[in-house]
Amino acid sequence: MNIIEIGGLTKKFGDFAAVDNMSLTLKEGEIFGFLGANGAGKSTTISMIASLLRPTKGEIKFLGKNIAKNAHFAKMNIGMVPQDLAIYEDMSAYENVRFFAGLYGFRGGELKARVEEALSFVGLGDKQKELPKNFSGGMKRRLNIACAIAHRPKLIIMDEPTVGIDPHSRNYILQSVKELNRMGCTILYTSHYMEEVEEICTRIAIVDHGKIIADGTKEQLKAIITDSKEIWIDVKSVEGLNQEQLKEIRGVLSVRIEEQRIKIQSRAEIGNLNDIVQQLIRDGMEIRAVEEQAPNLETVFLTLTGRNLRD
């Protein structure tokens, strides 16, 4: 069953189309990744799904029903984890979740049970009485999630839920997403972190300039890239490296540097590794390791958009 069907969705701010004639289908039980650089239109799209913004054009259906005409039904069954923390710092973790869950009509014992369930799910069961102002960034992010799941939505929309947190909390959140999915929730997961999306999502759409430019499983997406490969070369220090010379080498498409790692994208059919290594030695590089990468989502993204995901 399709939980979300989007057709011809457009959102304009003035003349600028933040979402541009987008069509998309989410099936029940998926963890659907929405991958795109900042400003691609991810938040605008999910805001329309969550009834926060009205589409300029197009239609959104939730479980077969138009969300504009069945707003109550859609809202009752959708949980939204906003990109910006949306919690009251002057109310305890418990009160935060209780207030938001209360908006879904729960009262009394049932409300209490759901609040406690949501808090222990995100690992804040023993911090219920504490104020979020004393929480770490990761704990706040987890509370942000708890506030969105206490009403047990069928679809949970998460807008960059791991921005700016420590690896431990990030991992906790990713595991929670998988757990929620196992419990039967469909997840729409927005991120500009390729590794996260690759790790947890069953299907991925790449968004750019308000459009979906590719979608499918990671394998399907990677299969798009058959004509290029990526070579990673670790060196002791990149000081003295002449990037321009590297780019002159036959077949080299792009060169990026991440700390002591030189990432070179190159045409797949051209054997130019010798030339590359010789050039690096001429530049005085001390080579530690050379690795040819299988295509990953980052290369897919780069190839499709011509831009780096984090630019």
């Binding site: 009834s51 926060l52 809202k75 949306a86 009251y88 908006l103 506030c147």
Partner: peptide
């Protein structure tokens, strides 16, 4: 300013 308006608007209220 606390962004909680998003949750209020997403809720069936």
């Amino acid at each position: 300013s606390r962004h909680t308006i998003v949750r209020l608007s997403a809720a069936p209220v």
